[in-house]
Design a protein around this nucleic acid. Sequence first.
DNA 1: GTCACCTTAGAAG
DNA 2: CTTCTAAGGTGAC
Length: 174
Amino acid sequence: MQRVNRGQWTLIAATRDGHFIARYSSRGLCALNFPVNEGQPGRVPSGSSEAPPQVLRWHQTTAAAIESILQGKPPRSLPPLDLSGGTQFQQSVWKLLCDIGPGVTRSYGEIAELLRRPKAARAVGQACGANPIPLLVPCHRVLAANRRIGGFSGGLSWKERLLSREGIVFQSTR
DNA sequence: GTCACCTTAGAAG
DNA sequence: CTTCTAAGGTGAC
């Protein structure tokens, strides 16, 4: 069987916080983007109607999971996650992130220690920034030492919003 | 090869 | 308190 790498589908998950953009490979959800222009009319991807039933089912699960996390609640289930796009190190970081439940935080340094690379805190930060599936792979629950906010590729305001909805207290000062 | 990053513990002023 | 340094994975140039 030939593997055509164009086999990806893009679907929109509409929420009160905007339209999230989910991308699927044949293996599962491989990317999730924060809403771009919350005011603008989202361009509906032309390929959505061609998506196979399996992908549509995954997307239902994804959309429900996003809603839960936006409310600070644990998702009932997750779609299969295709994290094959990352390096070995990044995937090991992302896998650890998945074990951090709502309302719980780790620091970049703690993640590094769990990976037995106690000096790689900064590399962990880079891996968090490279996380293709924010929210479902909860990189927002990783704070800097001393509960400082750290950074966030999707915009710090998103990180603050997500943390607040989970009841997580953090240092507002950098 | 060099540099900049979602870092951080430690040393020095 | 502030500033500087070094360590480390990775992508961009």
